[in-house]
């Protein structure tokens, strides 16, 4: 043994296969691809079989409805991959809505009010992040607390009143469509943001750190990942996007009220999980979450048009969510058994 060198010469670049599976295999045998196929199938079925689904106005409303969810789904993906959860997003949404309303009512220029609402979101996110990272509290408990706290602030600021006076230019542009098409303008900034957050998660050193933190805090620390800063950033991002979603929603309906967005957090988390992100952290993608949110929205819209009662819609989307988690959990299980048998045999 002593005659063979321990190390090879440096600089060799073709000693290993880079990927165990081929390109198509990697692209197609994955959760996101399954969600995409289901989405297309549901879309085509609804288009053909449900009266009214094919109308442009349906698409416009569908996209306007899903826009705030999409906004919140993007950073939530990062939060969940980092091994945490943010249940307070809908309350930040409501708080931002009320802050916007109160400031506009007080005569503050709307641009400044929008900016302030966004800032409030960042601060709310940092509060969550501080409690989780610096004080080391579990995010599930922290954000259940801030869910109540931020909602309480929102309702407290405005009481049961509502602010409905917004500059008409802003409210109409919130629902306007691109030229003569059925696609709302808001889709453009959301697509840009989705790409930006996708790049951040999948292509930057920071994003790699998010995955590492989610899989193993300890290994991440020993590799020089700034675990606390990473989590602080994802919580701040979550707060910011939730606030922007609240601003968009408020302008679209021209209505700021303390109860805006109540209960949205569960839909957001459902979309992320449906998109293949592991609730235990460390696994998932931005594309999956976007597809998950779109699938839930298309399904709900189609079922509504098919005159399915609202509670039945909830049952169906809930069942699909549970099924998708079961399938996600089952795939690695069977894959493992398969390889083990192969190795044994």
């Amino acid at each position: 043994m002593l005659d063979t060198p321990v190390t090879n010469e440096p600089g060799v670049t073709r000693a290993y296969t880079v990927h165990a599976r081929g390109l198509w295999h990697r692209l197609l045998v994955r959760h996101e691809a399954v969600v995409l196929v289901v989405l297309v199938v549901v879309w085509m079925y609804a288009n053909a079989g449900i009266a009214g689904f094919g109308r442009p106005i349906t698409l416009t409303f569908l996209l306007l409805d899903v826009a705030p969810i999409l906004l919140m789904v993007l950073p939530m993906t990062l939060v969940i991959i980092s091994g945490e959860i943010d249940l307070s997003v809908a309350s930040v949404f409501g708080l931002a809505s009320v802050v916007l309303g109160v400031m506009v009512k007080a005569g503050v220029p709307i641009a400044l009010a929008v900016l302030t609402a966004g800032l409030v979101g960042v601060v709310a996110g940092l509060v969550n992040g501080f409690l989780v990272t610096v004080l080391g509290l579990p995010s599930l408990a922290v954000t259940i607390g801030t869910l109540a706290l931020f909602r309480g602030l929102a309702v407290g600021l405005l009481g049961t009143k509502a602010v409905t006076e917004f500059p008409p230019g802003w409210t109409s542009s919130a629902q306007s469509t691109i030229g003569d098409s059925a696609v709302p303008v808001i889709v453009v900034p959301i697509a840009v943001l989705a790409i930006a957050i996708g790049v951040l998660l999948h292509l930057t050193p920071f994003g790699r750190g998010v995955y590492a933190v989610g899989l193993s805090d300890e290994a991440a620390i020993f590799s020089g990942v700034l675990v606390k800063r990473t989590k602080l950033v994802v919580f701040a991002l979550s707060g910011l996007c939730a606030a922007l979603a609240g601003v968009f929603y408020t302008l679209r309906f021209g209505n700021a009220i303390g109860s805006n967005g109540v209960g949205l957090e569960l839909g957001v988390i459902a979309a992320v999980v449906l998109g293949g992100t592991s609730i235990f952290g460390g696994r998932g993608s931005v594309a999956g979450s976007v597809l998950g949110a779109l699938l839930i929205a298309v399904l709900a819209s189609a079922l509504r048009l098919a005159k399915v009662p609202a509670n039945a819609i909830d049952i169906i989307t809930g069942a699909i969510l549970v099924l998708s988690i079961a399938v996600t959990m089952a795939i690695p299980f069977f894959a493992q058994r398969f390889t083990r048998e192969r190795r044994a045999g």
């Binding site: 670049t13 296969t17 990927h19």
Partner: peptide, 21 residues
């Protein structure tokens, strides 16, 4: 990233079927 991993895996004679295992 691949080039780095390839080079070190080879130098240390790591036994693995592929770099994404």
């Amino acid at each position: 990233e691949t080039r780095l991993a390839m080079s070190w895996a080879h130098r240390l004679q790591v036994k693995t079927s592929s770099l994404d295992s």
